[in-house]
Design a protein around this nucleic acid. Structure first.
Length: 646
RNA sequence: GCCGGCUUAGCUCAGCUGGUAGAGCAGCGGUUUUGUAAACCGAAGGUCACGGGUUCGAGUCCUGUAGCCGGCACCA
């Protein structure tokens, strides 16, 4: 007998060998029909699998988020079956569920074409209609390896060989097709439903390693219902309209061109936006106790050799040689420069923590395939700072930093998507004890400062220390690392940084590399997508347009614009011989937050008709009142807070 | 860098199976003085990314290169 505890707390006993389906049927016939999976002590199991033990028990239907993940996983299996039916000789590898869908990696010499996708979708629908039962089988390890080898599935055979000896090998069969898989799965292919769509074709390396063969990955999306699928497709379509590259062009913010790939030509409006963000960041750093510096853009190779960057990243540095034979490199990062400033003269323990900031323009020869709009560039500017401190100051500095970062992000209406902690890599400097302490400190400080999970990334830290990563999302859900804080025990050593301690001895400081925006350009890209170009007043490159209704009001319109400008607003004047409807439409499409229309009536009454982006009507206000209200609203959030406090 | 796709006017896009380029918007010249999301007329605008090839003939087919896009790998 096994005993199951249901979600309502009730307990019931069932015969040994009873399956989830038996349990569901014993409750209600309708429940059996709707049941897809069961959860036993937190573990998801196939509906028809005999329950292996007693425990807390739950029946999952289509509506459960866990069921959706299994639907997606099964969709990937159905895809694999469809592909193997349509393209015999194609090898299967792996095909997991992912956020919003699934993918499957195939090995096939000939590339799939986009046109093949619709044929695959049709075949998938057919397999769903066949309603093939999905059956779990436990196989002997060696037999499984031999079998998959024999049928030409080398990748599957390799996966099994690499599994631990004691791992139970399960194979799931649907009709004549089968796949090695941990499961669980739906009872039959019908339950996958038809709310799926194959979305893209891509290359992907076997086991994520570029030295391995490249496989063909097919991505798809799958949902519990057609309505969910439609909503998803619509969401993606809408999101594509927020693409920073599209908005950048439409709003005339910047452009990129072949002759300087991976580098931005900022146009006047875009540069205004950039400078607004930079000025804001500069204030935030200043009030948080940072000093700002500026180090040379190009420095001698010798310095990069000493810092260790030449050896590790020399390939990715822009270099040049002078006619006198010096070898120079354009800085790919700011830290060695900052250490030079730290090293100049003597530093005392009283100077620590020394927070040295720079809006540092960096150049890196990024692989061509990595470039992406203004999110990933070859020339970018870090809002970089290095905190030189003692070991016992690391935790407080980290907490302080994360608080600042949180506050900055919230001023831009951004939600942190995730926080990750990259842990020690195989090849690293420093002893394990030092790493233990460093990792623990970052973890503790981050948890304390943000109210969210800190996801560990084993092996992904830099060789010189662990690294906190703060990720934001773009319009279509891709995440970008923006903020970062990295502990560094190595560079101070290599570049010989030291300070005089209380007892007069010379000590090595620890360095914290940290950035909030990461790259100004990437952060602006994320901000553009976040606001879809409709910036709040303090950020908008053009905050207001004064539009005349008839030429009678031109002179007054000039006066209004001048008043606004005098109040510090970024204002444009539109005196063109066009209808007000036309002007309103044009400036609305350009996402100008405020349109101040003036005609004869306003000129006579010394008023302005204020129209806000996104609202239908307008408010008529006396000129002075309108100007001071707008000027007040245009105050950056940090200054507004400061004003409130004083 | 790797796999796949794309590249036609300033922008967004048409151009079927090869017969030497088309629209809307913007821009320019006029007319219109307008009350809150597109007034009207006109003229102009293109080495069809770049190079090579097949062909009587290439935007269209083949091939090379570049950039971009979607992934993968990379990201000090």
């Amino acid at each position: 007998m096994i005993e199951l505890i249901f979600p309502d707390g009730s307990k019931r006993a069932f015969d040994e060998g009873a399956s989830g389906r038996d349990v569901a049927a014993s409750i209600a016939k309708s429940l059996e029909k709707r049941a897809l999976l069961v959860r036993l002590d937190g573990e998801l199991l196939d509906l028809d699998r005999p329950l292996p033990r007693s425990g807390t028990f739950e029946i999952l239907t289509r509506e459960s988020p866990d069921a959706l993940e299994v639907i997606r996983h099964d969709a990937s299996h159905v895809l694999a079956q469809a592909v193997q039916e349509l393209f015999p000789g194609t090898q299967v590898t792996i095909g997991p569920a992912i956020e919003e869908g699934f993918y499957y990696d195939f090995a096939r010499d000939e590339p799939f074409s986009l046109d093949d996708l619709s044929a695959m979708e049709a075949r998938m629908a057919e397999i769903v209609d066949r309603d093939e039962k999905i059956v779990r089988e436990v196989w002997d390890r060696n037999e499984a390896i031999a079998h998959f080898r024999e049928i030409g599935e080398a990748y599957k055979a390799e996966i099994i060989s690499d599994l631990p000896e004691d791992e139970v090998i399960t194979v799931y069969r649907q009709g004549s097709w089968k796949d090695l898989c941990l499961g669980p799965h739906l009872p039959s292919t019908r339950h996958v439903g038809k709310a799926f769509k194959l979305t893209k074709l891509a290359g992907a390396y076997w086991r994520g390693d570029h030295r391995n063969a490249q496989l063909q990955r097919i991505y798809g999306t799958a949902w519990a219902s057609e309505a969910d699928l439609e909503a998803y497709l619509k969401r993606i379509e809408e999101a594509e309209r927020r693409d920073h590259r599209r908005i950048g062009r439409a709003m005339d913010l910047f452009h990129l061109q072949e002759e300087a790939k991976g580098m931005i030509f900022w146009h006047p409006k875009g540069w205004t936006l950039y400078r607004t963000v930079e000025a804001y960041m500069r204030r935030r750093l200043e009030t948080d106790g940072y000093v700002e510096v500026k180090a040379p853009q190009v420095m001698d190779r010798g310095l990069w050799e000493k810092s260790g960057h030449w050896e590790k990243f020399g390939q990715a540095m822009f270099t040049c040689e002078t006619t006198e034979g010096e070898e120079l490199a354009v800085k790919p990062m700011n830290c060695p420069g900052h250490v030079q400033i730290f090293n100049f003269g003597q530093k005392s323990y009283r100077d620590l923590p020394l927070r040295m900031a720079e809006f540092g323009a960096c150049h890196r020869y990024e692989p061509s395939g990595a470039l992406h709009g203004i999110m990933r560039l070859r020339a970018f500017t870090q809002d970089d700072a290095h905190i030189f401190c003692r070991e016992d100051q690391i935790e407080a500095e980290t907490t302080k930093f994360v608080k600042l970062l949180n506050s900055v992000y919230s001023d831009f209406g951004l939600d942190l998507h995730s926080v990750k902690l990259a842990l020690r890599p195989d090849i690293r400097a420093g002893s394990d004890e030092v790493w233990d302490i460093a990792e623990a400190k970052l973890d503790r400080a981050a948890r304390q400062a943000v109210n969210m999970e800190v996801e560990p990334l084993p092996g992904e830290g830099a060789f010189y220390g662990p690294k906190l990563e703060f990720h934001l999302r773009d319009a279509i859900g891709r995440t970008w690392q923006c903020g970062t804080l990295q502990l560094d025990f190595v560079l101070p050593e290599r570049l010989d940084a030291e300070y005089v301690a209380e007892d007069g001895s010379k000590q090595r400081p620890v360095m914290l590399h940290r950035a909030i925006c990461g790259s100004m350009e990437r952060f602006l890209g994320v901000a553009i997508e976040n606001y879809a170009g409709a910036f709040p007043l303090w950020l908008a490159p053009t905050q207001a347009v004064v539009a005349s209704i008839t030429s009678d009001a031109d002179e007054y319109a000039r006066e209004v614009a001048a008043e606004m400008k005098a109040a510090g607003l970024r204002v444009e004047l539109d005196l063109r011989n066009e209808k007000i409807n036309y002007k309103v439409r044009e400036h609305s499409l350009a996402k100008t937050p405020v349109i101040a229309a003036v005609g004869r009536r306003e000129a006579e009454g010394r008023a302005v008709a204020i129209r806000r982006l996104g609202s239908e009507g307008q408010t008529i206000l006396p000129l002075g009142e309108a100007v001071s209200a707008l000027a007040g609203e245009a105050i950056p959030p940090d200054l507004a807070r400061a004003a409130l406090r004083s």
